[in-house]
Design a protein around this nucleic acid. Structure first.
Lengths: 156, 156
DNA sequence: ACCAGTGACGCAATAGTATACCACTTCGCC
DNA sequence: GGCGAAGTGGTATACTATTGCGTCACTGGT
């Protein structure tokens, strides 16, 4: 299977649930709800926006509630953090084993906030080669590309 | 001239001063001192660490003092932000015109915190090509590569 | 030398992001 | 049923960053 990145939010939740079952980790109601909220928002969500939404149904939610859920979801590779925006997006293409996850790249529209995720092996390969030239190893890569999406470009 | 990235902190300050003169912007004492402090710290500095150090000589310094100086220095391309660490590093290779600045890449050792900066055109080229395939334009790229530096690798 | 305009700084307050800590509950396993 | 590990509730606090406004200092034009 190659990821096509066309799964709906509902499908992503199903896949996530399935994956957690396989991995023997718990997809609790809070974690599920947080994942649903993030999946429903194409441009990603800030932690406190998430908290606001979660609070409407889950009055006891506090910052640790949402950060704990996000930490869990990131460990499983179901959610990624957008470092340059302090925001979180659902991975459209969750890999079976989070630790085997190669790198990913985010494309972010500065006008509409849309975020798309890519998993391009040639990027990881180039990065590995680059750091190797300096004697480094590569363990993690953050690649965030900001520009205009096709829609915003033609609108301008 | 091709950047060799071997300039000492003092040399970087001289270059920065020269550049500001050319651009007609003011390299004030606060900005200079902040730049010196950042240049002196190979692994980058957090804003509040910077504030602590600045305060010892400049008692009136407050958060806006340091953030304003950092904003200025980033506009000039003299300092970069490490998004994944909320930290700031001096650019070892300041380009004459900040807006002509191609992308840069940061290599970060997770063990010792050392940071090295690269300006590799092939990375920018690959990123441009990638986003173009999705109809995007590329305006800004954040590339942060985390791993082990040669020293820490042999120490382990 | 004067003055107006702009940009830099001082200072206080507050917004926004994230974690530590401890008690209690639930789950999975023996 | 009892045990250990994991998850949650709840408070407090740490850390990161910005807004707003008044004042001062430099710049360029006269």
């Amino acid at each position: 299977m190659h990821c096509d990145h066309t799964a709906s939010a509902e499908q992503l939740v199903d896949i996530a649930e399935q994956r957690c079952r396989e991995l023997g980790v718990r997809f609790t109601p809070i974690r599920r709800r947080v994942f649903e909220l993030v999946s429903d928002t194409p441009g990603g969500l800030k932690a406190y926006e998430l908290l606001d939404r979660l609070s409407t149904e889950h009055a006891s939610a506090r910052p640790p509630t949402v950060y704990r859920a996000l930490d869990f979801l990131m460990e499983q590779g179901l959610v990624h953090r957008i470092e340059s925006q302090n925001a979180f997006v659902a991975c459209p293409c969750p890999e079976p084993r989070p630790d085997h996850h190669g790198g990913f790249q985010l494309m972010i529209c500065r006008a509409c906030g849309r975020v798309e995720e890519m998993h391009r092996l040639e990027v990881t390969a180039l990065m590995s080669q680059l750091v190797a030239e300096h004697g480094y190893t590569l363990e993690r890569q953050t690649v965030e590309l900001v520009g205009l999406c096709p829609d915003c470009r033609s609108a301008a």
